[in-house]
């Protein structure tokens, strides 16, 4: 299968302010691609470039095999989009919005009614009367009702209760099972871990990591907990690169966080003592994510005139 999204050195500056810089990435067909990054990292800018709402300063973007342009009507027919901050027409009802979208897309199918039922959404209310969660439901229904080939979702579960979040996850699973592709930006890392199979991490406008969620989790951080047959000390792991957060609990239990490539050295060092029990857990995506940003903070402390300081 080919790539549904391809960007090459995609760059967008708002005057002197960087939105995204030199972004090169590929999203394979049928994937649920998680696009992670803190506020201001360039996630929404990237999405808006992919949708032809922003004109890139340089670089290219290709979606569903078509070069993205500001006037990509045909492309938008095949895409469903849910914005990060839902902005709809306050004075109009949900039903009005559904008819409005249906007018552009040549009618409303059964899927719209199905989504209304599954989200238990009342379309007769005006948008200004809806809670944040209900506005989000409406945006999701509007974005998904035409069964798009590619779903681009910016923080799709923002404001939703856990029950409706689960509905969203199930819907995404169903879309992917039906051969659709999902490009999802999120701050909720447990959500990304739950639904995504590939992840791209964007930092200061650049893609700093991109791999499958499993690979990312597998080769990055591990939390280890070792019980020894005699009292131990934190210094046991001193000097080993890729090891931090070393603590000793109750005199004989040592806990530490170990980067993937340091595991071998750690095990060899532990083996110099009498080990009674050993537990090793992969770190959560949240830990991996924070690790990336910790590196970034350190880099910025070392280079205060870095990108944003210029």
């Amino acid at each position: 299968m080919g790539d549904v999204i391809k960007t090459a050195s995609l760059t967008k500056f708002y005057g002197k302010t960087r939105g995204v810089e030199g972004l090169t990435m590929r999203v394979p067909a049928g994937a649920v691609y998680g696009f992670l990054g803190p506020n201001g990292a360039g996630k929404t800018t990237t999405i808006r470039c992919l949708l032809g709402m922003l004109k890139p300063t340089s670089g290219t973007a290709e979606v569903l095999g078509e070069r993205v342009s500001l006037d990509g009507t045909g492309l938008r027919r095949r895409i469903g989009y849910v914005a990060g901050e839902v902005r709809l027409y306050d004075k109009e009802t949900g039903r009005w919005h559904l008819d409005y979208v249906a007018g552009f897309r040549g009618g409303r199918g059964r899927l719209a009614e199905d989504l209304i039922e599954r989200f238990v959404f009342d379309p007769s209310k005006r948008v200004k009367e809806l809670s944040k969660g209900n506005k989000q439901k409406l945006a999701l229904i509007l974005g998904m009702a035409h069964d798009p080939e590619l779903l681009i979702l910016d923080e799709p579960t923002s404001g939703l209760d856990p029950l409706n979040q689960e509905t969203v996850y199930r819907l995404l699973d169903e879309r992917v099972a039906a051969g659709r592709t999902v490009f999802l930006s999120s701050h909720v890392l447990s959500e990304v871990e739950r639904v995504c199979d590939r992840v791209g991490i964007i930092r200061a406008g650049r893609l700093v990591a991109e791999e499958s969620v499993q690979a990312l989790l597998g080769k990055r951080l591990r939390e280890i907990e070792v019980r020894f047959g005699q009292p131990t000390e934190a210094e046991l792991l001193a000097g080993l690169p890729g090891v931090d957060n070393v603590t000793v609990v109750g005199g004989d239990v040592l806990k530490a966080r170990v980067k993937g490539d340091a595991v071998d050295a750690v095990l060899k060092r532990l083996a110099t003592r009498h080990v009674v029990d050993l537990q090793m857990q992969r770190a959560s995506l949240e830990d991996v994510f924070l690790e990336h940003y910790r590196e970034d903070r350190v880099a910025r402390e070392l280079d205060p005139m870095g990108e944003e300081g210029r």
Binding site: L51, G52, M53, L70, R77, R105
Partner: peptide, 17 residues
């Protein structure tokens, strides 16, 4: 300014139109 343009132009309508 209201943010509704993002919603409108995510539909299959050309800017010219």
């Amino acid at each position: 300014g209201d943010g509704t343009m993002e919603f409108a132009l995510s539909q299959p309508v050309s800017r010219l139109s």
